[in-house]
């Protein structure tokens, strides 16, 4: 059995990214699309932290992961405000059927 190395973390992150992309592409509900985006951001973060450990680049990768988490929080707040507005206007949040900006 081989020991856990950088590649193991990269493989986990690749699968997480693919699942996130699958969620973004296939889901109809806007909130579910948001969940897919969170998965994608998490997979990018795993890569940052893994390279930070195995590449001997100091803690710069971890700082980037921290910034990504902060941006994800801001993104989630704004996106949910937009989703609430969509719901107020159309009475549903089905992104397949929303094709105009004004009611």
């Amino acid at each position: 059995m081989i020991h856990v190395s950088l590649t193991h973390y990269l493989v986990v992150s690749a699968f997480l990214f693919s699942f996130g992309l699958y969620g973004v592409v296939t889901r109809k509900n806007a909130v579910m699309v948001l969940m897919g985006i969170e998965l994608i951001l998490n997979s990018a973060n795993i890569n940052f932290v893994a390279f930070s450990k195995f590449g001997n680049y100091g803690l710069n990768g971890q700082i980037m992961a921290l910034f990504v988490i902060i941006l994800a929080a801001a993104e989630a707040a704004i996106a949910l405000a937009i989703v609430l507005n969509i719901y107020k206007t159309f009475a549903h949040v089905d992104v397949d059927k929303i094709n105009n900006l004004k009611e």
């Binding site: 973390y9 930070s52 450990k53 988490i69 929080a73 989630a76």
Partner: peptide
């Protein structure tokens, strides 16, 4: 996984911001 990678602070921030913040926001949504 962050904790296994030696990133203790990132792991704690992940729990606080994602689980405590973003997930609650999504549930509100």
């Amino acid at each position: 996984i962050y904790a296994l990678l030696g990133a203790d602070f990132i792991a704690v921030v992940q729990l606080m911001v994602y689980v405590g913040g973003i997930l609650v926001l999504i549930l509100f949504g």
